[in-house]
């Protein structure tokens, strides 16, 4: 049985969660379902766009099923949606109640400060994980249903990568909120970091001297390994997870040390 605080956190996030889950599921289903109709258009798009642009967008080819899924679900809009969901929800664990004053009545919950932070995070992380797992889970159903020629193990690997990517940024967002208690700071720092590391990964593939940049980008560990073609890369997934775990742990420790609500 989840604790009262965990249930309260879910209840307060319910509307937002349902909205994100429906949006992410609809996006995944619609894009995947239109694979056959889009083939002509995809070919045109691929021929019309210069190769540099395709590289930047992380699109290797849009014609094969794996290339199509990579281009539509996994390269830009999918991560964008689930990261926006994760970052806005993680900003609610500590920063939002601290800013709107509801924190005091949450924090009188008879648990230690670290346990409080841990329970708030656990509730939100579980919810965010479900949303982030939706594209992968849906694709495991849709890919065989539509008859796309991709190994399901590869689909699962890409779906897991999206979850690991979200854990990475959720941890970072939690850390920022736990330390600053400012919602705008969580959104700005984590959002800018996501965009900047996305760009770093994209640019590193285009310019010869900048190849090293990709190692700094969570997006490289998520999609740079090309899981839809090459399958599981446990090292990359563990790296993303480790960033999430470490930033979370630091966040809990620093939250335990500071004044709340000043």
């Amino acid at each position: 049985m989840p604790t009262a605080l965990v249930r309260k956190t879910w209840r307060d996030d319910r509307r937002a969660l349902i909205g994100w889950a429906v949006g992410v599921a609809a996006f995944t289903t619609v894009y995947t379902g239109f694979y056959s109709q889009f083939q002509g258009a995809a070919q045109l798009k691929q021929e019309a766009l210069p190769q540099g642009m395709l590289d930047f967008l992380g699109i290797a080819d849009m014609l094969s099923p794996a290339g199509y899924l990579q281009a539509t679900i996994f390269s830009l809009i999918g991560p964008l949606l689930v990261l926006m969901c994760a970052i806005t929800l993680i900003a609610r664990t500590i920063a939002r109640p601290e800013e709107d004053g509801g924190m005091e009545l949450l924090l009188v919950n008879p648990v230690s400060r670290p346990a409080f932070a841990g329970q708030r995070l656990a509730a939100t992380a579980a919810a965010v994980t479900v949303v982030a797992a939706l594209p992968g889970l849906l694709l495991l159903l849709l890919v065989p249903a539509i008859g796309l020629d991709i190994a399901l193990s590869n689909v699962a690997a890409a779906g897991a990568g999206l979850v690991a990517l979200v854990w990475c940024f959720t941890g970072i967002g939690f850390l920022v909120g736990a330390v600053t208690g400012k919602r705008a700071t969580v959104l700005a720092v984590t959002g800018v970091l996501a965009v900047a590391t996305y760009m770093a990964n994209a640019i590193s593939g285009m310019a010869d001297g900048l190849g090293w940049l990709r190692w700094l980008s969570p997006f490289h560990y998520f999609i740079g390994t090309d899981p839809l073609h090459t399958g599981w890369h446990p090292g990359a997934l563990l790296t993303l997870t480790a960033v999430g775990v470490v930033t979370t742990a630091i966040g809990v420790v620093l939250f335990d040390r500071r004044d709340v609500g000043v």
């Binding site: 307060d12 005091e104 008879p110 648990v111 346990a115």
Partner: peptide
């Protein structure tokens, strides 16, 4: 600080700037 959990179980607190979390 050290005994927060045990202590808060025995305290009833009314904040001066009252704000409730959520829409319940």
């Amino acid at each position: 600080r050290r005994d927060k959990a045990a202590l808060h179980r025995q305290i009833g607190y009314l904040p001066g700037e009252l704000a409730f979390p959520g829409r319940d």
